[in-house]
Design a protein around this nucleic acid. Structure first.
Lengths: 186, 186
DNA sequence: AGGAGGGGAGAACGATCGTTCTCCCGCTGT
DNA sequence: ACAGCGGGAGAACGATCGTTCTCCCCTCCT
């Protein structure tokens, strides 16, 4: 028997896999139950509603994203390389099996208009990423404005890679970001 | 009584308004009927299924997008300004009431995994935009690669503007694009 | 004039979904 | 040993949705 912590994690991980692969509304709670191996009764003891579960899934994705971005940055030598490492992280992600774009952008498009809580979770995630890039940009002694430019390239790369199935856009986004860093350093 | 052409247009326009504002799956066909003022029976005479209607809506959006982008480009004097005019077009769009991001990206996130036809419509739209920018880039005598860079900025601007409610990202995307054009001209 | 057919209003149907409830098993503490 | 309870399996419920059908009216053609 799973304790509460383990059951929560199992349900969130299962829901994440299914929601990401098929979209939230295309996945019934019964499919989550089957994937997680946790009964519906227990799921509804752990989460008040499906919306709650979606929010928990997004929170998990935010933790994974932050960890991945920071791990990539940790392998970079200079402040400039730390900024560009974001695109190496994206490159590896785009090449993963089952990559289907940014879960936050997807959820926002599907449910942002209906669920203020989900819209807010997405907004918070993107805001945190922008703050993270801004910190890196300041470390590199570059003007604040370039942070948003880098963020736009990263967001554009995610949607474009998802739609066109072309993982190489990460490399082009990285080159563009390098150009922008050089231009704003001048 | 509306003739077939007018009824189709009314239904597609109504569905577009509702789908864009609330998401496709959040809108029942009965709501489309009410908004369009066309009976369900007639709607299903004009479109085989809801999926067909979604595809028709996306086709309309593609026409409107192409027209808007070309109109913006027509007001620009130089090849360089024609490229950057894309971001002026985005700027005006982001400031419209009810702006909720790119309908194609939203639909892809919601239904791309379930409906191959919708995924293909989205892919086709983005591909056409990329080709359009590529043509402008070649007119300007710039290397092909910069076209994808400009596209990434435009896509990133759309999702970021939608999520953060910040229309100013269009200006920053335009500045970034100008930097990239200058850098690749050197 | 009269019949045929297109179209509107809305009921009906079958499926699905989120959520809750029932029934029962197996473990726990004393 | 036994009362009690957390939990599993799955039925049940109420709502919604895509799609079709029924019934009726109106209009056009000969």
């Amino acid at each position: 028997m799973l304790d509460e912590q383990a059951a929560r994690e199992s349900v969130v991980a299962a829901a994440d896999r299914l929601f990401y692969a098929r979209g939230v509304q295309a996945v019934g709670m019964d499919a989550v139950r089957a994937e997680a191996g946790v009964s519906l009764k227990r799921i509804y003891g752990l989460f008040q509603s499906k919306e709650d579960l979606v929010v928990a899934v997004l929170a998990l994705r935010t933790r994974q994203w932050t960890e991945g971005v920071e791990r990539a940055a940790a392998g970079a030598a200079t402040p400039r390389d730390r900024i560009l490492s974001v695109f190496d992280f994206l490159d590896a992600w785009f090449r993963e099996d089952g990559f289907r774009g940014c879960a936050f952008i997807n959820s926002f498009g599907e449910l942002g208009a209906t669920s203020p809580r989900i819209a807010e979770a997405v907004r918070g995630h993107k805001e945190a990423f922008r703050e993270h890039v801004l910190a890196l940009v300041r470390e590199a002694g570059l003007p604040d404005a370039v942070a948003l430019q880098v963020v736009l390239l990263a967001e554009g790369a995610q949607t474009t890679a998802a739609i066109t199935h072309d993982a190489d856009v990460a490399r082009e986004a990285r080159r563009a970001a390098a150009s922008l860093l050089a231009a704003s350093a001048a």
